[in-house]
Design a protein around this nucleic acid. Sequence first.
DNA 1: CTTGTCTGCCCC
DNA 2: ATTCTGC
DNA 3: GCAGAATGGGCAGACAAG
Length: 457
Amino acid sequence: MHKIAAASGIGSQEVKINILSELLKKATKLEARYIARIVSGRIRLGLGDKTILDSLSIAKTGSKEHRKELDEAYHVCPDVGNIAEVYLNRGLKGLEKIDVQLNRPVQMMLCQRVARISEAKEKLGLPVAVEFKYDGERIQAHKKGNDIKLYSRRLDDITGQFPDVVEQIKKNIKAKTVIIEGEAVAVGSKGNLLPFQKLMQRKRKHKIEEYVRKIPVCLFLFDLLYLNGKSFIHMPYFQRHNALKKIVKETNNIRIASRTICRTVDCIEQFFENIVKKGGEGVVIKSLSKDSFYEAGKRGWNWIKWKPEYAKGLRDTFDLVVVGAFFGRGRRAGTYGALLCAAYNKVKDRFETFCKLGSGFTDKQLKELPEKFKRFVVKTKPARVLIEKEMKPDVFFVPEIVVEVTGAEITKSPNHTCAKEKGQGLALRFPRFLRYRDKKPEDATCVKEILRMFKKK
DNA sequence: CTTGTCTGCCCC
DNA sequence: ATTCTGC
DNA sequence: GCAGAATGGGCAGACAAG
């Protein structure tokens, strides 16, 4: 398998295929099954890093009693191997010494969610800080003199992607050593925020400098984890934020994230409405209490995110026609993993795809999918269905069953045919299943309506 | 050289 | 990203 | 509530095939 991984360049695919086929020839049936799963990366054990921490504690003490300490160390030093070595050799004493360290990324703190905005008040009390939630990429920046490193949410080193951000930090962050966090967003010539899809074009290996000019980025900072030799993660949020404000010299390409302090729920709602108008994704509501620490690696209640789509009853939903499906993998083997959904084009009397749908089903609903759709399966694409050639469902359905679907927003799409014009269609971001609808496919949400919603944005 | 297809401890 | 489920 | 595993849209990259 090392040989397979190491092969690259012209002809490498064939080399990989040959090694694998030899391996499979030598294997028993059962071995072959697992070899196939390993190479295809689809082996699932139901056991992740967190469960390994449990097992470490049990190995040493016979119980999970050290799990909390292991967790804390792991969040600051996200390397199970390292944690295991320190813990097994030096025990809790060793773990205690693991602290925030420059050029070793800290697991990022995440937001909790609520169903109603008033719940934020119940959880956090008042006042709270309310921050603009930018639609970009989370970045944790480490500055050690002139040595700058950038890390992604999954803690990958992405310094090479953003030489412009590195330069901004070098010039405009007044601290010798510091760890700060923010959201990188693509911006237009007037400083206007651009969609996430634009920013993603910066996620490249070649022509980086060209794209630095083509798609400028602004880093909106919102936290500080470390300053001049001292960890700040066990300090309250307002203290971290104050320290951050002191060291940032704002420019068009590096700023403090827009925010306000609210003493009422009305104020939160007002700020939120304003942000949605400006094209923001939503807001993050942050605790101002004395124990509002940076909860590394956790989805804690100190931060709560609120997006328009969370408001039940207010959010837009779509009634879409199911025109195809994809076989499921892993725990969804034997049923469909996702349905291909389309809107109805009244003028042309056809169905145009808008999204695939694989989230929001209960296990029971999933299990029942093949039976439910059995009557409508056809081998080839029905004439009234319009699908991109890259989109290849495992089965097609005669348009008949209608599902109610929700999602975050409508985006331009190269993969879907809904309202397609000049090679660009429309798609639904973060789609999820709500329920089946008892209506005719011709009464589904029409393409014109989706186009109108997209333009309104 | 273009086009097609698949992948990513990918980003959201 | 969202969602569901076993513990 | 945590941990894990399903799944989405969409981007650039890396090859293979033509």
